[in-house]
């Protein structure tokens, strides 16, 4: 294991994967917004708007509430870093994740949970009534979505007899997903539902609105400004890309993914480039339905959200049980 870590090429691939995630995260968000605008018949923001927003926010000063404590100062960093660390477990276009030896897919879920926890604390730190509302709702949605996420994960963990993400991806790429087509469809749909819920996309939460009573995620970071807001925005982009990456590697297991792993000795720049391009293509394929869903659905009332999540839960249970039967 230590030899693997010390292998320079593997480390380089791992670092490249994280950089890819960091680089394309704002782009995917802009891409979704662009598609939405086009479907609405608008021209839409430019595709590089995400980067500009982040950079502009970093260069602005932070306005902090006088009631804020050290939680407000460290929470943005912890949220961002927890998402980043969980991104390190994630094999993106090749099975060599940078930190695959430190954690598996359960650790990934719980590390993201650490970020959610601190974001909720941040919402409550400024003595604002909106922050508490956002925290209360956001963490409830996150906790109701968690069992579904775990069940989907376990469906694949049991299929491949491991919780190591790289191993799961390799097995799925090797054996294909169509041994259990019904399970596959249901897991896919359940995963779509929880991705929407966890990332605060439209039927659950509206990322664009700033109306106090309808927003969930935005209410928590209402008091955020400057670099803190930039970190929060960036971590929500990253979270979305993590979910899309998981989905694209589990549910669309085609590409040069496994090819890279077998030919690690014949390391070639071209293969890697090809893999990256293929990965980005897959991500775009999976990002497009989100835009379509957002454009065609209205935001659910908050107390309808449990129904929505319940649908996801039942789908994931069916998927798991059908696999076991």
């Amino acid at each position: 294991m230590w030899n693997d870590i010390l292998n320079l090429k593997v480390a380089l691939i791992g670092i490249a994967q994280i950089l890819i995630l960091i680089i394309i995260a704002p782009f995917i968000n802009s891409y979704i917004n662009k598609i939405k605008s086009i479907l609405r018949g608008q021209r839409g923001r430019p595709l590089l708007q995400g980067y500009k927003d982040i950079f502009k926010l970093i260069r602005k000063e932070v306005v902090l509430s006088e009631d804020a404590s050290y939680i407000s100062k460290i929470a943005p960093y912890i949220v961002f870093v927890s998402i980043l660390v969980s991104a390190c477990f994630l094999p993106v276009f090749s099975p060599q994740a940078l930190l695959s030896f430190t954690g598996d897919i359960i650790a990934l879920v719980y590390t993201i949970g650490l970020g959610t926890f601190f974001m909720a604390l941040y919402g409550m730190d400024q003595a604002s009534s909106f922050g508490g509302l956002g925290s209360s709702r956001d963490i409830l949605i996150a906790s109701l979505a968690e069992p579904t996420l775990m069940l989907v994960i376990f469906a694949f963990a049991l299929q491949t007899k491991t919780t190591n993400i790289s191993q799961i991806f390799i097995d799925i790429h090797k054996n294909g997903f169509l041994n259990y087509p019904v399970s596959y469809v249901f897991a896919l749909m359940a995963f779509l539902i929880i991705s929407i819920a966890e990332n605060g996309r439209i039927p659950v939460d509206n990322p664009d609105t700033h109306l106090e009573l309808t927003m969930v995620h935005e209410a928590m970071i209402l008091e955020g400004s400057g670099r803190h807001l930039a970190l929060f925005e960036y971590s929500s982009y990253l979270k979305l890309i993590i979910f899309i990456t998981l989905a694209s590697n589990i549910f669309l297991p085609i590409g040069v993914y496994s090819g890279v792993s077998s030919s690690i000795s014949s390391f070639s720049f071209l293969t890697i480039l090809y893999a990256i391009l293929f990965y980005i293509l897959k991500v775009l394929i999976f990002a497009t339905p989100i835009a379509f869903i957002e454009i065609s659905m209205a935001k659910l009332r908050f107390f309808r959200v449990p129904d929505f999540l319940m649908l996801g839960f039942v789908l994931s249970i069916i998927s798991l049980v059908l696999y076991s039967i």
Binding site: V109, G113, D125, Q126, S135, S143, L144, E146, P147
Partner: peptide, 21 residues
Amino acid sequence: ALAGGLAALAFVKAYGISFLG
């Protein structure tokens, strides 16, 4: 997993309400 999430909710409440704000 559900219990883990709800425990986080309970403890966010315990910490956030009593210590923050």
